[in-house]
């Protein structure tokens, strides 16, 4: 799949620093992050809180300026965009947020929420076309009966329904890339799959490229063809999702996989990877050296505190940053 098509988004050596109010060094939220997004494919960015995964989405959606690195969308660098360029960019690269209750305006109807972007981005020739277009969108995301749903206010919809409205908005404008930041974490369990399946449909039918941010490896496996594992602002391992899960190379990935609850583990008394427990996650700055996993890694060596491991290729699509697999 990805080897056949060209990437629609290329991120190279992205660094994002935030000023540390009350401290000397700035906080490095992202350090040397590189990846590509392909049409019709999803890449999961997996990590725990503080890993920087949401920051990637915010930088890519131009909510935060980058500190350094290349952000290339459709072969053009996006950081210098102003005014109309930003407006056009935001049409093509959109975000879906975690909180379905926060991302819709409570005083406007669903109709309004869909009409507005259609008008702003001139997706309809006149207001007369709006009802049909809006109803068609609502039906496409499974919000039926569409006419009734359109008249409702956000508070009348459940979390899952609101998330579907957010997805309908992205469809309305015709996004090429969707940055989905934990889109199902705040939803009831039985509703999550419906939303994930809808996103899958958009991937297949509208050729949308997804960056799917999650802390849940199991849904990453379900939805994303490729996965990147983030730790303290660093991409420590990435590749095809099945490879990452079946044959994790980085000690942090191994820890993450062993931590995920799974009833199938019930009767397997497998040896869990040892790790130094109850450690605080470090804060990375521009002056920090070594591998971020030092202090928690069961395989720590001297060189791990001295320099950042380089990227090692495990197989054609599987990469890892770890001294166990290669020297800098």
């Amino acid at each position: 799949m990805s080897s056949q098509s060209k990437p629609i988004f290329t991120v190279k050596k992205l660094v994002k620093d935030f000023p540390n109010t009350g401290g000397p060094n700035s906080i490095r939220a992202l350090n040397d992050v590189s990846f590509e997004l392909f049409p019709g494919e999803a890449m999961a960015v997996v990590g725990e809180s503080g890993s920087g995964k949401s920051t990637i989405a915010r930088v890519l959606s131009l909510l935060h300026p980058k500190s350094s690195g290349d952000l290339v969308f459709k072969e053009a660098e996006i950081s210098g965009y102003k005014g109309d360029q930003i407006k056009r960019y935001r049409q093509q690269v959109q975000m879906i947020f975690q909180d379905p209750y926060g991302s819709l305006n409570p005083v406007h109807t669903i109709y309004h929420h869909l009409a507005r972007p259609l008008l702003i981005h001139k997706k309809v020739k006149s207001k007369k076309e709006l009802p049909d277009k809006i109803h068609a969108l609502l039906e496409e995301v499974g919000l039926t009966p569409a006419a009734e749903t359109a008249k409702k206010f956000p508070f009348e919809l459940s979390g899952g329904q609101r998330q579907r409205v957010c997805i309908a908005k992205t469809l309305a404008i015709g996004a090429d890339v969707i940055l989905a930041d934990e889109p199902t974490s705040a939803l009831d369990v039985s509703i999550r799959l419906g939303v994930l399946n809808l996103m899958e449909k958009m991937k297949r039918e509208h050729n949308v490229a997804f960056m799917y941010i999650t802390h849940d490896l199991a849904t990453a496996r379900y939805f994303a063809e490729r996965t990147a594992v983030m730790y303290v602002g660093h991409m420590v391992e990435w590749g095809e999702t099945e490879d990452i899960i079946k044959d994790p190379q980085h000690p942090y990935t191994q820890l993450l996989i062993s931590a995920v609850p799974d009833p199938l583990k019930r009767n397997q008394k497998e040896d869990k990877p040892a790790h130094v427990k109850n450690q605080d996650i470090p804060i990375w700055t521009g002056a920090s050296v070594g591998c971020p996993f030092v202090g928690r890694c069961p395989h720590e060596m001297d060189k791990c505190s001295q320099s950042m491991p380089a990227i090692t290729k495990i197989s054609e699509k599987h990469f890892v940053r770890c001294f166990l697999h290669g020297d800098s």
Partner: peptide, 24 residues
């Protein structure tokens, strides 16, 4: 059954799941 099938597995076979349709 619906609830159990709402949890994609990390291990084992990968299959298409539907969750539960409708609302609470």
């Amino acid at each position: 059954k619906g609830l159990v099938n709402s949890f994609p597995h990390l291990l084992g076979e990968k299959k298409e799941l539907t969750g539960i349709a409708g609302n609470p």
